[in-house]
Write a protein that binds this DNA or RNA. Sequence first.
DNA 1: GCAAAAGTGTTCATACTACACCCATGC
DNA 2: GCATGGGTGTAGTATGAACACTTTTGC
Lengths: 278, 278
Amino acid sequence: MSHDRTPAAQSPAQAPAGYDAGEYPVFFVTVDTAIFTVRDGALKLLLVQRQDDPYAGCWALPGGFKNPDETLDEAAWRELAEETGVTTSGWHLEQLGSFGDPRRDPRGNIVTVAYVAFAPDLPDPVAGSDARDARFWDVDDLDLPSLQGGNHDRGLEDAPELAFDHTVIAARAVDRVAAKLEYTTLATAFCRPQFTLGELQHVYEAVWGVRLDRSNFRRWVQQTTGLVRPADTDTRRTSGGRGRPAALFEARSELGTLYPPLLRPDDARALRPAKETR
Amino acid sequence: MSHDRTPAAQSPAQAPAGYDAGEYPVFFVTVDTAIFTVRDGALKLLLVQRQDDPYAGCWALPGGFKNPDETLDEAAWRELAEETGVTTSGWHLEQLGSFGDPRRDPRGNIVTVAYVAFAPDLPDPVAGSDARDARFWDVDDLDLPSLQGGNHDRGLEDAPELAFDHTVIAARAVDRVAAKLEYTTLATAFCRPQFTLGELQHVYEAVWGVRLDRSNFRRWVQQTTGLVRPADTDTRRTSGGRGRPAALFEARSELGTLYPPLLRPDDARALRPAKETR
DNA sequence: GCAAAAGTGTTCATACTACACCCATGC
DNA sequence: GCATGGGTGTAGTATGAACACTTTTGC
């Protein structure tokens, strides 16, 4: 769904009920979602290649128009389902921020509300009817601007060209993910229902781009309340099939605050932009 | 400005340029801002009392309609200036989130983008033409819902009744403030250009509702890079006029990330809702 | 002198870092 | 056996909490 599909429209584009036309300016409202997953030791972002103008051929975050009879969250869930086939399951989906620059869409005044979603590991996406292609991109292969005015345009060869202001949105989204790993249980959202501590550690390492000490990571996870709980089953091997089989754990709650947090080393803050809205 | 003033409208409320009417649903877009200050050792929130229906007599966050020719940030700054008379100075203003429940406004489909602003200490606000009154409220006197499903309706006597979904927005805003003190330089935004370490500590104590050890706070502030810098002037006494005069400091930058953060004690997390978006 | 707030130092317990070492599996 | 990843322990250091003491002002 990339801004070009007709939503289940029921009301014509007049002024919303309750106001006379002409009283205040009106806007289209869209919802765009940055869907992340961790695969092959790297953080991946789902992008769809646009079929039609504007920005035909460019890559964009999946999104669509808000309906008058749904909340913003519901619109994001609906678009997520349409895009990935996911039934409203245990995924984590949260609002990132809104963007309303009048020049952000050449067609006119469109305010978009950006969301961020986190997926364990996904079957490869299918391109929708309005999309030429759809795939997960390694975020390190995207040419995203640094949030603190650093080096945009790193001279990447195969970096896709992004539509609209989606480079800005994607950069903010990547930053949000990295920041939230520190003080929330978000990392478990990238794992399947049952996971090993090694898999969980790989999430942190992939998102932050660092190596963590296995022993210390273990200790931190287990003494941090509300993060994981041992699964009451047997063990299985993972990570290829080598090594000793690992114990399984499961996430404890939906999304909680961690105390103490796991602060990334400050060199990991430099690589991926640090400041943000949280 | 409380949803009822005509913005500097230039385009009639038809579909935005570039699209045919009827193609997609349209919405009004408003901007509401939670303006905080610290006064008398407590965190205060600016509310205006509505003159007209809906919710006449109720208190609301100051806000207004977005214009078609401005970004969301610009709209928030404009409303902030209209409300407080502040020229676009060094204030900190950031987006909180958007709310688009179709039932949030009885007049119809209005999507609002909420902002949070931080003021050092403000001359008392003047009620606008559309407002019956305007004043700072102690956040502890507001009946805000806990974000983690806790105790709403604490049986406060003089708690004002809030319009629309502004209890939810205000609760999220309070939570955002408390969370951002931990790992950003936000606390300095509540201080005047030059301040003492005691004043800075009072900000933390007021927002978190705790007492901090003076000695440890001092040490933390001074060893944390990028938070404060000594002002090159003489000293002055503060806090009433008692005690030894204190050295003055000034904020170092706009809004930075703190490393290490100053984590509030976990009992302070329970009082004010903890989880949040950052 | 006394109260109040600023400024400095010291102690002690805890938490974090960086390793070293053993275990269980596939090949 | 060997490579690979899981699991446990430990010494040294850094960090943070609690508290004692001194200094400078107003009254």
